[in-house]
Amino acid sequence: MFRIFDRIRRTGKLTEPLPDADAEAEAVELEEACQREIARKFGHSLAIRMVDAGSCNGCELEMHAVNNSFYDIERFGIHFVASPRHADLLLVTGVVSKHMEEALKRTYAATPSPKLVVAMGDCAGCGGEFGKSYASCGPVSAVLPVDAVIPGCPPAPLQLLRGLLDLLQRV
């Protein structure tokens, strides 16, 4: 037990401010603005339900990464929830496979309005490497209305974070 406490003490705090080489002040401002927006529009907390509609699982790995100590997405009041019924936003990855089409639609229907849909990654955004075929409906916009696209294959954690924060300023 003492070894664990000691390790925690030595690790210290890792969470980083949003880096922005050009204008750090602007980044800080963005952070504060987002926290204000989330406070005003989402009751201080934005709940995300992720849906993998046909990804290669690369996007999922980076989604896990925004939860690690370096990015700590929860500091903005953003957290991932287990059920679409608790969610404000669906974060969808992958092309929409034909076999996931109905499940994605039902997840959307189960999410209370008002709701946002974000297509994460090139597959979800434009079809990416998999595109449209006998097995794939193509990008998420072929199946659901999409509020924002976060490009990348996969988007790095900072891109994901930035994409979400940008959207929140727009809505």
Partner: peptide
């Protein structure tokens, strides 16, 4: 089979 994307075919 839910994320079958037709990789072999494409």
């Amino acid at each position: 089979g839910y994320v079958h994307k037709g990789i072999e075919k494409i």
